[in-house]
Design a protein around this nucleic acid. Structure first.
Lengths: 109, 109
DNA sequence: ACCGGTACCTAGTTCTACTATGTAGTGGTA
DNA sequence: TACCACTACATAGTAGAACTAGGTACCGGT
């Protein structure tokens, strides 16, 4: 992963994962695959699991263990009310930053 | 500063400062003021100075000391060729991330 | 003599992504 | 049987960047 991207993902990756969970529960391995399909090809698997532990401890998601046909049991994450609230704040923060940056880019700065 | 914003600024603040320096040299105190005017009201002064040290050590800016009428001498930073290259890469990284996020938001995810 | 504004600097803390590695279950195949 | 690939989760240690919380210094006005 490029260093710039690594740094830029700090703070946004969590929002991205919360967004992925909107309307659709998912488990860690699946989320990693989804992220890679969306272009984040170099996301480290360990990064995703650590993030999931974090958002679970923050109480943003509910967790359920389900057996898998193909390996160890999956931990399925569902966005809860607090998670939705956090995601909302994330979009607000993102919008603010995004607008400032587009402004700067427009100014040719 | 909100925690979300603090994390999200990681990686982007450097780009923002490089962008501010495009076409106009500036010194630290001035950059801090500029950032606050642009809405980053809670940027810590120390953060800016640390960042300036970093981009100087990375060779992205040239530095010149100029006397001030109002206080200690100013350290004026000018974007150099390498800095412009870095800024370019920053915009590329930003564009990628920005597009992915807008996509996610559009999908209502 | 003091204070506010200008101007710069830094040691230590916190948070997040990465590196590197380990553990397990399942199915296929040599 | 032994091995390997894929699925699936987990974590200890590292690096990098912004913040906290100070400090130094120069100038003008009261």
């Amino acid at each position: 992963m490029g260093k710039q991207m690594t740094e830029m993902l700090k703070g946004t990756l969590e929002g991205i994962v919360l967004a992925l969970l909107t309307g659709k529960a998912a488990y860690g391995y699946e989320i990693t695959t989804l992220l890679r399909e969306q272009g984040f090809t170099e996301i480290a698997e360990g990064t995703v699991y650590a993030l999931l532990v974090r958002i679970e401890q923050k109480g943003l998601v509910d967790v359920e263990k389900r057996p898998s046909e193909k390996g160890p049991p999956r931990k399925v994450y569902t966005l809860n009310t607090q998670g939705e609230k956090e995601l909302n704040e994330f979009w607000n923060t993102w919008s603010f930053l995004s607008e400032r940056l587009e402004q700067l880019r427009k100014e040719g700065k």
